[in-house]
Design a protein around this nucleic acid. Structure first.
Length: 911
RNA sequence: GGGCGGUUAGCUCAGCGGUAGAGCACUACGUUGACAUCGUAGUGGCCACUGGUUCGAUCCCAGUACCGCCCACCA
């Protein structure tokens, strides 16, 4: 039967892929004829995902490498799998619940919600796998992995090892000891200022924050000195000439976030700033809130304020700004939290009046401690550093603002201060007000922002005094998934002490055990790792690996304390004095490395059984250890840890598990070893780890690549991969990012439907110059579809001339005719070029070399010259040569265009 | 503000110490035994700018301009 004029991709591709699967052609080790291994871990797509051009590119590159090595006889593994993608998936499922009119997550138990997610995962989990198959991805699907496999509640089909691996790593990092056997935890918990996403109500890591420049305003307000004190405010120019001198009873503060004034703990000026030296160590008043209950805060010095910027004085709000946090820590200034988890002004706690009074005492005590104030005569309560818990429980939001959204609160604060006359006023011509305002007498709204209306009335702009509100571009942090403004929040979170594990990850790239391509990626890698910050790994979500830490009840609650009385007395006798409380608890928990609070024991283990063993050491063998339930935890996980009195010689202790889950990148950070069965020493692990190459987008160099390096080196002491091939984002033909709003999204599946997977793959390969920008145009894809047709027709021509009758030999023929000898030589050369190009990850060179050879040499010249030869004595030799040459083309093209080459082999009977 | 990268034909991009390359587009011609999703021939470049190193620079070095991307705390 004569061949069709073109390759029918739509019909052939599914049929061919099914045949490959049936033959287990992609199983690990399939077709292996040598010992050497070649392994790639797929960057696991999110379970919420569907194939986009980025995936198409990424997986094409991986597939080319995998097929190329597999054809060379390597023992090859391309490991597939998916990522549970904590926040992203939880978001999708919450949206689904809403769409279905079901109760929201807040009204479900944790367990019930998780089972919804598992259901959803089962439904949608196969989508991307099927799409990858359409692309031709030759993954070993029997080994498909998932980053949440084996977690509690996982349904059949997801009973893998991943959860155990993640938990084991957490426990090991938590219990890590240094070379001398001393505790050296790589993971710790602490109250820190973290990036808080008010939409998802969880902490996120630095990397999940996108800073975007937005139009903002800077307001200038007067903080009056306490007790109506005054000072001479003198301003000098660069030459030291006095340009302004006036008597002031206030200090001027500039801020872009007036609502955080309520939480100010101090005002800071630079120690060398002569303008304010007279008032350092005095108290000033935050100009918001009920007039008779205004809070007083000290004026302090710190290196942080820049005397040349603004007024040179900075308000310090330790709980709501990262810079201020650092200042507050250095100076011992309390950090007052103002907002709830949704970033509304707090409405909990006691009346403002009481807490404001307490805060004033703290301020005064601070001044006494620093020597600015003498301890007053008479009654005086000594304040130490007030306990963190006390400070964070205080609510310094005046009643009028409680419960307001932060932006609403901002408008109210600005309006109230302005109404009271405590905004800094300037002539309407002041250049800082911005051009539009100064030139127009434009009116300002309640919050001082320019409005569209114009003020009528006869006053000249220069005579009119207006509040100083500078329009100013500010960098605002947004959540990368929620797109809401991130709020710095003071919360308890878990961190990886990255500084302790970063060294080996840097060394491995420095000494070449791992190579990053393109080379510029290494510089970026070094730069980030050399300046690495602690990694916040706890998330206040439900979908994820729950942190394997349990809290026990406060032992002082019951007679448990008596068990230790004896030991306490013994030690006290030895020391010759009473033990302090903390010494007492230290004894009690001497075999534990870390204590969360002086009195609440913490256990970290791989399983509840592990934890029971630990708990019995604390509470005694005569204890039944239980675990708290969802319902018991609804008032707080710490409170859910309880202890009962002894009944019949036994007592019950209820442990409560940390409610947080781990950052999804913590688990995907273990992808290379986890997918191979670690912690079991599986055959696959021995064989395929470390992996050969990681192919991934540049955008997740920090999120994933760097963390895999750190974690694999920390856990198994080996690099996870020898080479990292980084590529860019796939853009549209104009180089613009594809987005739904721009309407320039190219759907790879549509392309595959229209032009076939091979055309798309060849285009991807052709674009893949190391470090190059990936601009995808449909024209180009069409061109490479034509290339496939060209090859098809060359084979069709060969078929019409009986070329395939003797099949292709694998050994190069040794013809006599010049043309035949020439093409055999050219074929050998292109083979060497393609191998060299792929070895160097120069996919574009490989694709271009093949294009030039197949079209420019084989079709344009060789086939033309061969035509007359089929009529003469050299016909047989020419047939054999052509069969071999075309077979070579197919072999070399197969990794890039697997479908059409497979089909050609089948239909021509070439193999 | 810091870091990284780019600037080569009309377009998209390779190249890299020694007469500038590809694809697409364009022009002219062409239904010669597979292919019109085609063939043949051709047009087209101060390799951003300024200096330096060199026998020789698109390439190496320094600086300038513009364009991207990443990171960053100026209230």
């Amino acid at each position: 039967m004569p061949m069709e004029k073109t390759f029918n991709a739509a019909e052939a591709e599914p049929r061919i892929y099914a045949a490959w699967e049936k033959a287990h052609a992609f199983a690990a080790g399939a077709n292996a004829s040598r010992e050497e291994t070649f392994s790639i871990m797929i960057p696991p797509p999110n379970v919420t995902g569907s194939l986009h051009v980025g995936h198409a590119f990424n997986n094409t590159v991986q597939d080319i490498l995998t097929r190329w090595k597999r054809m060379q006889g390597y023992d090859t593994l391309w490991q597939p799998g998916q990522d549970h993608a904590g926040i992203a998936t939880q978001l999708v499922v919450e949206r689904k619940l809403a769409e279905a009119g079901l109760p929201p997550r807040a009204e479900m138990t944790r367990e019930a919600f998780l089972s919804r997610i598992w259901e959803w995962k089962a439904e949608s989990g196969d989508t991307i796998i099927n799409q990858l198959k359409r692309l031709g991805a030759s993954c070993d699907w029997d080994r498909n992995a998932f980053t949440m496999s084996g977690a509690p509640g996982a349904p059949p089909g997801d009973e893998g090892n991943f959860h155990d691996a993640v938990i084991k790593v957490f426990v090991e990092m938590f219990n890590h000891k240094d070379a001398d056997g001393n505790p050296d935890p790589l993971i710790y918990r602490g109250k820190r200022l973290v990036n808080w996403d008010p939409h998802f109500e969880t902490a996120i890591s630095d990397l999940e924050v996108e800073n975007v420049e937005v139009a903002g305003f800077m307001w200038h307000f007067k903080y009056p000195l306490a007790g109506g004190e005054t000072y001479d405010y003198v301003e000098k120019d660069e030459d030291g000439n006095e340009v302004l001198r006036e008597v002031r009873d206030y200090i001027s503060i500039a801020t872009t976030r007036p609502e955080t004034m309520l939480g100010d703990g101090a005002v800071a000026v630079h120690p060398t700033d002569a303008r304010y030296s007279a008032i350092v160590g005095k108290l000033c008043e935050i100009p918001v809130g009920p007039k008779d209950q205004r809070r007083l805060i000290p004026i302090i010095t710190d290196e942080y304020p820049d005397p040349t910027f603004g007024s040179g004085a900075v308000k310090i709000t330790g709980a709501h700004d990262f810079n201020d946090y650092a200042v507050a820590q250095r100076a011992g200034i309390p950090m007052y939290a103002l907002m709830d988890t949704k970033a509304r002004m707090r409405a909990d706690g006691g009346p403002y009046e009481i807490d404001a009074r307490e805060a004033k005492k703290i301020s005064e005590a601070w001044l006494v401690k620093k020597g600015y104030l003498k301890k007053p005569d008479g009654f005086w309560i000594e304040f130490g550093d007030p306990a963190e818990e006390i400070v964070s429980a205080m609510n310094l939001v005046p009643e009028a603002y409680r419960g307001l959204d932060r932006f609403e609160a901002r408008a109210r604060v600005v309006a109230d201060i302005t109404d009271e006359g405590l905004a800094v006023m300037v002539p309407a011509t002041d250049p800082r007000l911005g051009k539009a305002y100064a030139s127009s007498r434009q009116a300002r709204g309640e919050d001082g922002r320019p409005t569209d209306s114009y003020e009528e009335g006869g006053m000249a702009p220069e005579a009119m005094l207006v509040p100083l509100v500078e329009p100013k571009p500010i960098m605002q942090p947004f959540g990368d998934r929620s797109k809401v403004v991130i709020e710095p929040m003071l919360t308890d979170q878990w961190f990886v002490d990255t500084a302790k594990i970063v060294g080996p990850a840097l060394d491995a790239v420095r000494d070449g055990r791992t190579t990053i391509l393109p080379e510029s990626g290494e510089k970026v890698y070094f730069h980030w790792l050399e300046n690495i910050e602690p990694w916040c790994i706890s998330r206040q979500l439900w979908w994820g690996h729950r942190i394997p830490v349990w809290y026990g009840p406060d032992v002082s609650q019951t007679d448990v304390a008596e068990r230790f009385q004896e030991e306490k007395e013994k030690l006290a006798a030895t020391l010759g004095r009473e033990l302090t409380e903390s010494e007492y608890f230290e004894i009690m928990h001497h075999h534990f490395d870390h204590l969360p609070t002086p009195n609440q024991p913490r256990f970290c283990g791989n399983s509840e059984e592990d934890v029971v063993v630990q708990a019995l050491l604390i509470y005694g063998e005569d204890t039944d250890v239980l675990f708290s339930s969802d319902a018991e935890e609804q008032f707080g996980f710490r409170a859910a840890a309880t202890i009962s009195p002894k009944v019949g010689g036994r007592r019950q202790v209820r442990l409560s598990r940390d409610p947080d889950v781990l950052d999804t990148w913590f688990s995907s950070g273990l992808w290379p070893i986890g997918t191979l069965g670690w912690p079991e020493q599986t055959e696959a692990l021995k064989k395929y780890f470390p992996t050969s190459v990681l192919v991934t987008g540049q955008d997740i160099l920090f999120f994933w690549v760097a963390r895999m390096m750190m974690m694999q080196l920390a856990v198994v002491g080996e690099v996870p991969f020898h080479t990292v091939y980084l590529h860019q984002l796939v853009r549209d033909e104009k180089g613009e990012k594809m987005s739904k709003t721009r309407g320039n999204v190219i759907d790879p599946l549509t392309i595959i439907d229209q032009y076939g997977a091979d055309a798309l793959r060849f285009t991807m390969a052709q674009m893949a110059a190391p470090g190059g920008v990936l601009k995808l145009s449909e024209e180009r894809i069409k061109g490479y579809r034509n290339f496939g047709t060209k090859l098809w027709n060359a084979c069709r021509f060969a078929e019409m001339n009986g070329v395939w009758e003797g099949h292709a030999t694998s050994a190069p023929p040794t013809p006599t005719a010049t043309v035949n000898r020439w093409i055999v030589g050219e074929a050998a050369r292109v083979r060497a070029d393609v191998d060299a190009a792929l070895t160097a990850y120069r996919f574009n060179d490989a694709a271009n070399a093949l294009y030039a050879f197949v079209w420019g040499q084989v079709c344009d010249w060789y086939v033309e010259f061969a035509k007359p030869l089929f009529d003469g004595d050299l016909a047989q030799e020419t047939r054999e040569t052509m069969a071999w040459v075309l077979d070579q083309c197919m072999i070399l093209l197969h990794p890039i265009m697997p479908f059409i080459t497979e089909e050609l082999w089948q239909t021509t009977g070439a193999r």
